[in-house]
């Protein structure tokens, strides 16, 4: 089946043998890659580094929330259609924790682009590093969270799609396998949604709340220790990267635009002060 950009789309079985285009492949195998990121914990106090260009490393980290939903969706798709879920991240040794958790939840294997320098890559180069690391793989789908809680660019997944020459859809709330590809539900602004049909392979960026997250089981945590984790060094992908196209000149605590009055005292005192404001300043009582 020729895909829209003229690229031949061939469905393969578990042994990479091409399958004929029949309805049977609907039941088959989805090989899904999930891009995940480790970010500072939501309420972790952040300190700037000496040059004021990034944060200091000594904070607590967690998995980027939308990425957790992306992983959950991949696991659910695999449970429905069969297949494989592979997780990938870029970052220093600490980022392996994200992969271990994903393996414990049911991912089959992991790829770790391990180097502190990956943290400083812009979205363009991060996507290029991912593309280089998976060049020998053949995925049907790539999921990422819709954006990260640290940079918040909301770009890496879409850039990766363009680098691979694949179609994409963003802010996805539902995925359904169809005869000739997938049907996804996109979230739009102001409470609107839209279904979009598209061929595979494709990249989807996943919205938080698409599903209910699972917890890792004890047995899952145990099994995770024996699952394959491939490490990719900066040197392995360096030739695919360029200098960053954008540069953080400085990072700082934003200046307040409002004159905020902090109310202090015991809870009872604060309640009284608030009611005074509500009555005399805000005038809603």
């Amino acid at each position: 089946m020729p895909s829209a950009n003229g690229r031949q789309l061939i469905y393969t079985d578990a042994f990479a043998r091409p399958l004929l285009e029949t309805a049977s492949y609907v039941e088959l195998f989805l090989k899904i890659l999930v891009g995940m990121k480790q970010v500072p914990q939501k309420d972790a106090p952040l300190k700037l580094n000496e040059s004021g260009t990034w944060i200091r490393e000594d904070v607590s980290y967690e998995v980027n929330e939308p990425d957790a939903y992306a992983l959950e969706e991949a696991l659910r798709q695999k449970e429905k259609h069969g297949g494989e879920v592979v997780v990938i991240t870029a970052g220093p040794a600490r980022a392996q924790q994200v992969l271990r958790e994903a393996l414990a939840k049911g991912a089959d294997r992991a790829i770790h682009l391990e180097d502190t320098a990956f943290v400083g890559l812009d979205a363009f180069n991060t996507a290029r590093a991912f593309a280089a690391a998976i060049q020998d793989e053949s995925f049907d789908l790539i999921f990422t969270g819709l954006q990260s809680d640290d940079y918040g660019y909301a770009q890496t997944g879409v850039i990766l799609a363009e680098l691979l020459g694949w179609p994409h859809a963003t802010i996805i709330m539902q995925i359904e396998k169809k005869d000739a590809g997938i049907r996804v539900k996109r979230e739009l602004e102001a409470g609107y949604f839209q279904f979009v049909d598209m061929p595979l392979p494709a990249v989807l960026t996943i919205q938080s709340g698409i599903n209910k997250l699972r917890y890792a089981t004890l047995i899952g945590i145990k099994q995770a220790k024996n699952k394959p984790l491939r490490k990719v060094a900066m040197a392995d992908v360096q030739s695919s990267l360029s200098g960053n196209l954008q540069k953080i000149e400085r990072l700082y605590v934003p200046q307040k635009t409002k004159n905020t009055e902090f109310l202090e005292g015991s809870a009872a005192e604060i309640a009284k002060k608030l009611v005074d404001k509500l009555r005399n300043e805000v005038r809603v009582l």
């Binding site: 809680d149 918040g152 196209l245 540069k247 000149e249 990072l251 605590v253 934003p254």
Partner: peptide, 16 residues
């Protein structure tokens, strides 16, 4: 642009 969910801000330039 805001970073880290608005906790910090960054001034970003184009390098290309």
């Amino acid at each position: 642009r805001q970073m880290f969910q608005g906790k910090l801000a960054a001034d970003v330039s184009f390098a290309g």
